[in-house]
Design a binder for these strands. Structure first.
Lengths: 196, 196
DNA sequence: CATAAAAAATACTAAGTAGTATTATTTACA
DNA sequence: TGTAAATAATACTACTTAGTATTTTTTATG
């Protein structure tokens, strides 16, 4: 990686961390540069303004992470219900980056900025739609494989399980304990089994 | 209501609105006073600082709203599954205050501030626990009434449906359309019926 | 009505904010 | 190696922020 590219990457990664823990609006450029070896000159060389940087965080860090952690494992699943359950378990209990206290980075960012910034929101829609499609396809495959009842509506189920994930992330932040994740996962398993 | 009390109330209500639409950290005292007829002197007469005001918003506006809109209708329900479904439908599609674009005020506030302010978080825990207990009791009643299967775990179900609500509020913000609410509600109905 | 306390108005401060202008350094490559 | 372009450093600006200090007005009550 070229040095300039590394500087840019440093900015995006630090910004991602701070946004994850504090929120986008509460994260200042001064703080990003104070906690890296990047100067203000370098920051504004790489990004026209704070918004452009925020957009790059979504598209280059968040989207990549979402794709890697939230879609790959169910992309060609032969056991849709099982693999969807495992995906959520992995995300909630095993993912090394996410912390109960701070929830899910994408969730946080979307909740904060979706109504406030159209450019951000377009990127959010892309992320969410991508995830939704992956889950929907997975459910459809489960039907084709005869593992899921014929009358199950894949689109509905996809929205339903996505919602559960988003919501339990909020409860986790409030209780600051994985206990509620565990409880949620038990019921998720029951629900998914009820689709058989 | 005494005049001073009205001033205090004006501050809290305007603050609630702005926090709902912009977030707590992004809402400045200057903006609150600029959009009311309240001066800075009056503001700091009623509240020691911004945090104390935020706490009052949670305890006096949000908690009240939560209690009124989210627990009363299921408090002594004789048809738990039906009434829980109706509660969510009412909250998502009929509640006059909440807007798809801005989601649920309590959700937003919790997601933003739970990890950042302990005093706020204690108040959030009270709110969430109250709601959780109400739903759990409702499910238990459903079991006692023979409307819900014996093997259903009320605590798990309560977390599960609460999660769904929190999450679909986020999706609603991103898509800025009630369509996903409608889709979600259909699957919620299926899920609740599966508990019979 | 007098007056003390409650409530509110005004003007200010110090720190933080995004962003700019200018200068300096590093890099690529002719 | 020389030099132009790319990258980065420094110092600054105009504005916003939470909060304070001080004064003024309003209210309650003897």
């Amino acid at each position: 990686m070229k040095k300039a590219e590394a500087t840019r990457r440093t900015i995006l990664e630090k910004a991602f961390d701070l946004i994850y823990m504090q929120g986008y609006q509460a994260t200042s450029i001064d703080e990003i540069i104070a906690t890296t070896k990047v100067t203000k000159g370098a920051f504004f060389y790489h990004f026209k303004n704070k918004e452009e940087m925020g957009l790059a965080v979504i598209k280059e860090i968040m989207y990549e992470g979402m794709y890697k952690n939230m879609t790959q494992s169910i992309a060609d699943s032969k056991n849709p219900l099982k693999d969807i359950y495992n995906l959520f378990k992995e995300l909630l209990l095993l993912n090394p980056y996410m912390q109960v206290k701070y929830g899910c980075p994408a969730n946080n960012f979307m909740q904060e900025m979706a109504p406030l910034n159209d450019a951000f929101n377009i990127a959010f829609i892309n992320m969410v739609t991508e995830w939704h499609n992956m889950i929907e396809q997975c459910i459809k495959r489960g039907k084709a494989l005869g593992q899921i009842r014929k009358d199950v509506n894949p689109k509905q189920v996809a929205y339903f399980v996505m919602s559960g994930y988003g919501g339990i992330r909020i409860l986790g932040k409030v209780y600051n304990s994985t206990d509620c994740y565990v409880t949620y996962l038990k019921e998720l398993k029951s629900y998914l089994n009820s689709l058989q």
